[in-house]
């Protein structure tokens, strides 16, 4: 793993078909999870096409700070298994109350909504992120352990630990999908950050998956 300051490793780290596979598998995870969110908010959840890239933590943190919305709130869960990383559900901070309101109902007062915010975000994040990772684990036929959800507030850099133990220049596999809740002013991202030491493991898993496509048990001729 040579993540030095020169030409980054991103070009070669994953082949085109590996990136395609990851995007497709993540898309299945997020699409399934979006249905859980849809059931919670009672309105359609619109999803973007997923983007997969290998970037530094610093670059990833900039990607989530869109439209000058630098104050973010995120529900995050760590996962461990054949590969390790973190899954995050991220909103501009100004919108988290609107999300909570769309879940608990419009009849609640602002005080109630503020009281419920932490719990509602943790629960929403838990359902969406678990749903997403469970689908990914099932598709890849692997088991993943998930931590309990925690809530982080701050800019992109603090969400992605650009400073501190992990350096901002460290490369991560970054996968994200935008979502919007129809008829509500709520938009956010689901992001997966995987540590680079896991990429070798990830490559192997994706390649096993691709090789196994033709070896699925048959049984329904005609």
């Amino acid at each position: 793993m040579t993540g030095n300051a020169g030409e980054p490793i991103e070009k070669d780290a994953l082949t085109e078909i590996e990136q395609d596979a990851l995007a497709e598998i993540a898309n299945m995870g997020v699409s399934r999870a979006a249905n859980s969110l849809r059931q919670m908010v009672g309105a359609q959840v619109l999803l973007s096409v997923p983007a997969v890239s290998i970037v530094t933590r610093g670059a990833a943190s900039k990607l989530v700070e869109r439209n000058d919305a630098k104050k973010l709130v995120a529900v995050q869960q760590s996962f461990e298994g054949p590969f390790d990383g973190r899954a995050l559900l991220i909103f501009p901070e100004a919108q988290s109350l609107e999300l909570v309101r769309s879940i608990v109902g419009d009849q609640h007062s602002l005080e109630d909504v503020i009281d419920l915010e932490h719990e509602a975000l943790a629960e929403t994040g838990n359902i969406i992120l678990n749903g997403c990772l469970a689908t990914i684990a099932n598709v890849l036929n692997r088991t993943m352990r998930m931590s309990l959800p925690s809530i982080i507030r701050g800019d992109g850099a603090s969400l992605f630990e650009v400073e501190g133990a992990a350096s901002g220049g460290q490369f991560v596999l970054f996968l994200y999908i935008d979502f919007n809740i129809k008829k509500r002013d709520v938009h956010g991202f689901i992001a997966l950050l995987m540590d680079l030491p896991s990429i070798a493991a990830l490559k192997e898993i994706v390649s096993d998956f691709i090789n196994a496509i033709d070896k699925q048990p048959s049984g329904h001729a005609g």
Binding site: I17, D20, A21, E24, N27, I210, I213, S218
Partner: peptide, 17 residues
């Protein structure tokens, strides 16, 4: 748009039809 998804689909066809 996903080549992988097309591969999965084509593989299922080889088994079913």
């Amino acid at each position: 748009d996903s080549k992988l998804a097309r591969m999965v689909m084509a593989s299922a066809f080889r088994r079913i039809r």
